[in-house]
Amino acid sequence: MKWTAKLIKYKSDTRIAVYFEKDIDLIARIKQIEGARWSQSLIAWHLPDTEENRNRFKITLLNHSLPSGEGVIQIEKFKQFLRSKRYSESTVSTYSDALKSFLVFYREKPIAEITNDDIIIYNNDHILKIKLSASYQNQTVNAIKLFFQTIRDTKIFIDKIHRPKRAKVLPNVLSKEEVKLILDAHSNIKHKTMLSVIYSCGLRCGELLALKPLDIDSKRNIVLLKNSKGKKDRIVPLSPKILELLREYYKTCKPKEFLFEGQTVGKAYDARSLQLILKQALVKTEIKKPVTLHWLRHSYATHLLESGTDLRYIQELLGHNSSKTTETEV
């Protein structure tokens, strides 16, 4: 089995990230490790930093796993740049980790001497050699390009940095019947409403959990999504049926700060708990597919397309900059 593991900072905690091409058996084994979590932003599984897990994934803290002194300084400057541009903390962590891996590879070479050919060598002798995914490679390219845009003294030509060719894979989509089974699986009004709003509005998990009661405009039958991915606001339509469900939920649960709150009043519902709600629905409905919350968003887009909705309109609803991104979801 080809995989690579390294220590990362994730939400202020030290974790062990494990990168590998999708493998059902390895995923099943990792799921059995206590505290294992999947991160969409990292495109990796991550585990608690324990001695047992370090031994399990052969994690060692050797000097050659660190960048040069110059690299450490530049990584910190890069983080400051990203934060000044108001990138999310998850993106700051992902991009700085990717840059660190690149600068560790070239720790004996001055950054000013790194060329475009060195990036190609890194892709071949590191990313491809240990069979990291095209998505991870693309993420690394994004980080490297952005980093060298901020460096004045460089031999890198930004426009000549190439990206991996995108794999054409079918999106993960549920049938309308499967979606109905999932949405009807829970009798708990909060659980049912959260899953229903994600599907019926095509929301990302984070967008749902950031909603506040005032973001629901019942007179215009719309949902206002503020400062979502890419720091963009957008509006999505709200069906009368879902509006009635939201009204019933609001009367029952009476949220204060966020539309969907956890056990602590005024604190947004936990994303991991929401994922667990979906897993419970899959058990109840006996759906064996490895469904994630993002599948509901994929399914929303596909069902709109199947009903004759214009692709450009779907692109606006999903909040995509490019229609190519939308095409991968439908």
Rank of each mutant, 00 (worst) to 15 (best):
F102C: 05
L103W: 01
F105G: 02
Y106L: 08
E108Q: 10
I111C: 00
A112C: 09
A112V: 07
E113P: 00
T115Q: 04
D117F: 07
D117A: 14
I119R: 02
Y122M: 04
N123R: 14
H126C: 12
H126R: 13
L128M: 15
L128P: 00
S133W: 00
A134K: 14
S135D: 06
Y136H: 09
Y136V: 09
N138L: 08
Q139R: 11
Q139S: 13
Q139Y: 13
T140S: 15
A143E: 04
A143S: 15
K145I: 11
K145M: 13
F148L: 03
T150C: 04
I151F: 09
D153S: 13
K155S: 09
I156Y: 03
I156V: 11
I156M: 15
I156P: 00
F157D: 10
I158K: 06
R163E: 06
K165M: 06
R166E: 13
K168G: 11
K168H: 08
N172P: 03
V173W: 10
L174A: 03
S175L: 11
K176W: 09
K176Q: 15
K176E: 15
E177R: 15
E178M: 02
L181T: 06
I182C: 02
I182V: 13
A185M: 08
S187F: 14
N188Y: 03
K190I: 02
H191S: 12
H191E: 06
K192C: 01
T193G: 08
M194D: 02
L195H: 02
V197W: 02
Y199N: 01
S200I: 00
S200E: 14
S200G: 11
S200W: 01
